[in-house]
Amino acid sequence: MSMSRHSAAGPMPEDRAAGPAGRVTRLAALRAAVARIEGEPVHRLEEPGAAASGRRVAQMQPLGVPEADRALAGGFPTRGLTELHVEETRGGGTGVGFALALAVLLADSRPALWIGETRAFREAGLPYLPGLAGFGLDPSRLVLVRARRLADAAWAGEEAARSRALSLIVLEVRGNPALLSLDGTRRLHVRACEAGVPLLLLRQHGQPQATAAPLRLRIRPGPAATVPDLADQAKLLGHPVFDVAVEKARDGRLQRFRLEWNPHERRFQALDRREPHAGAVPHPALHRPGAARAAGALLALHRA
């Protein structure tokens, strides 16, 4: 058997003509064949030809936070399937927030597509335009697909993954349906890779399961940051914070990092970095009477 496989994979005349790039592809195919024989998951290997042509750099979107980019080995993959897991439906805002932050980072002239089931939307809420706009996303660049059944949603996801007309696809499902197990995710991944489009499979209360996606992240909510200029007001809610655990990656390392999304500057930032706000000190009003002075004696009363 090994003999026949060797002869099938042996050097061909056209291989030599194709040059080094062809040889790399060939090598990757051989590696994949060996891996299949040895029972190693194929998707852990490098993409064929990616390293040689230098496209690998362009296929990553750096998140702009060194810790996160290190954990993700360069950034977020901009083609193929990525799984995002949220532990509970009631924390669904967090997963969606992370997906939409990526949509903002990856936005170009093409729209983003958000596919979900009608029942899931009823349970976890519909996307809300004022909130999306406040989050930094241009709502006119978002198209929503509300599928009546899961099969329809999966079909729409495959159909969208084949198109090159989208900047990002979010496919939101509940749990671990059989339709989107290893086979289903593989189909999605292959199509999205071919079209060069990022596809996020957002699972509400999803369990870890065999998947064809090279990267799987578990998103948990983190306590929101404090408001920069009112750091003493501990009760106020600042920018959203995501606690991201890398559960599956190409290099096999499990990592965990925290990110803060800044909707005004439309970028991720590290948690500890606190820049003083430039316009923190208000100018005195010119045409108005000044602030009324406190009348009478000041009593030292604490707040209730």
């Binding site: 709502p139 006119s140 978002l142 929503l144 697909v145 509300r146 009546r148 729409a156 159909e159 969208a160």
Partner: peptide, 15 residues
């Protein structure tokens, strides 16, 4: 998508 899922399933948000 609209032909398969029905036109009411493919939506845009408008303010």
């Amino acid at each position: 998508l609209g032909a398969r899922l029905g036109e009411a399933s493919v939506l845009r948000l408008s303010p």
